[in-house]
């Protein structure tokens, strides 16, 4: 067994250990902490699997923002914990364990017997990269070959926002999502919230820009920007915009909207819906990505902020 394999086993063991902790620990808060750690460490596996684009996404969305989302809920729900008494009985646990283990084993078996050499679209993706003149095949797949999925997924994000907003009390409709944070203006939190966001903005835009040719892209960049925005909000330096704001809504649909417009332009003037004329492919895709990063940053931020809770001035 080579050192590399041993390392991989250690990595898998650490990640799985955190997974087990997340599932079995009694306190929800501890489970959440475990899950955030899990999410950030899974990024290591993705690097090891040579999927840097996914590693970035997993670190940013899966671990970072997702973890914070869960954490906020865990903190708010802490008081509800003792009320829950309907824990599963031992028989249920045993049955569930057996069934889950069987499912996992079947899955593992199915993965192990997959054909070798494995089928792949990597050569096709690489050899068709001329159509967009972008060197990152993952971005090509997302923005050109499977652009429909990406566009629909942006609509999913929008629907998630609508779903979250639809849970607001009627009286708070049109107001600001989440509580208004206030912080000691001389505190360390505010200090960091003043220093970090500009750096994060540069990094976020860099991740977007580099996504054309290297791992990166709008999702990952957007997640970083959202984190920075939320940092400023948590430190009380900014407030969430009211959901009735027209400008906010424009930003929230900018990504899918521009995607749709470009797609329809392709249908009317080009060869097909969501096709790009090769000469303008790169600028068009970049324009869509710029709109998308704004949309993603705003959407992720607002998803973390939650439903509208208060009117302006409250």
């Amino acid at each position: 067994m080579s050192i590399a394999t041993i390392f991989e086993i250690v990595l898998a063991a650490v990640v799985l250990g955190l997974g087990i902790w997340t599932i079995v620990v009694r306190e929800t808060y501890s489970a959440t902490v475990g899950f955030v750690a899990y999410g950030l460490l899974v990024a290591l596996i993705w690097v090891r699997l040579d999927a840097i684009d996914v590693a970035l996404t997993e670190a940013a969305i899966g671990g970072g923002l997702g973890g914070v989302l869960l954490l906020g809920a865990a903190a708010q729900l802490r008081d509800s914990e003792p009320a829950v008494t309907d824990a599963a009985g031992n028989a249920v646990r045993v049955c569930a364990a057996i069934l889950s283990a069987l499912t996992a084993a079947t899955l593992a078996g199915a993965v192990l017997v997959l054909p070798d050499p494995a089928p792949t679209l990597a050569p096709a993706a690489v050899s068709n990269a001329w159509a967009t003149s972008l060197a990152n095949p993952v971005t090509n797949v997302l923005m050109a070959f499977r652009a429909m999925d990406t566009m629909l997924e942006k609509v999913v994000l929008l629907l998630a926002i609508i779903g979250v907003w639809s849970l607001a009390p009627d009286s708070a409709w049109g107001g600001h999502p989440g509580p208004r944070h206030q912080a000691d203006p001389h505190g360390v939190l505010v200090f960091l919230a003043r220093l970090l966001p500009p750096i994060g903005i540069v990094v976020g835009i860099y991740v977007l820009w580099t996504g054309a040719n290297h791992p990166g892209g709008a999702f990952q960049g957007g997640a970083i920007l959202a984190a920075m925005w939320l940092l400023a909000i948590m430190a009380g330096l900014a407030d969430t915009p009211p959901v009735s704001s027209r400008r906010l809504r424009l930003i929230l649909v900018a990504g899918p909207g521009l995607f749709l417009v470009v797609g329809i332009a392709g249908l009317l003037f080009g060869s097909a819906f969501l096709s790009y004329p090769p000469a303008q492919a790169k600028p068009l895709i970049l324009a869509i990505e710029v709109a998308m990063i704004l949309t993603i940053a705003a959407t992720l931020g607002l998803l973390l902020a939650g439903a509208p809770e208060r009117r302006t001035g409250q």
Binding site: L40, A55, L56, G64, I199, G216, I224, M234
Partner: peptide, 16 residues
């Protein structure tokens, strides 16, 4: 770049 993202996001998570 992943490390950079991790640095920013881990900071954010700890603050949260």
């Amino acid at each position: 770049d992943v490390a950079l993202t991790l640095a920013l996001l881990a900071t954010f998570a700890s603050i949260a």
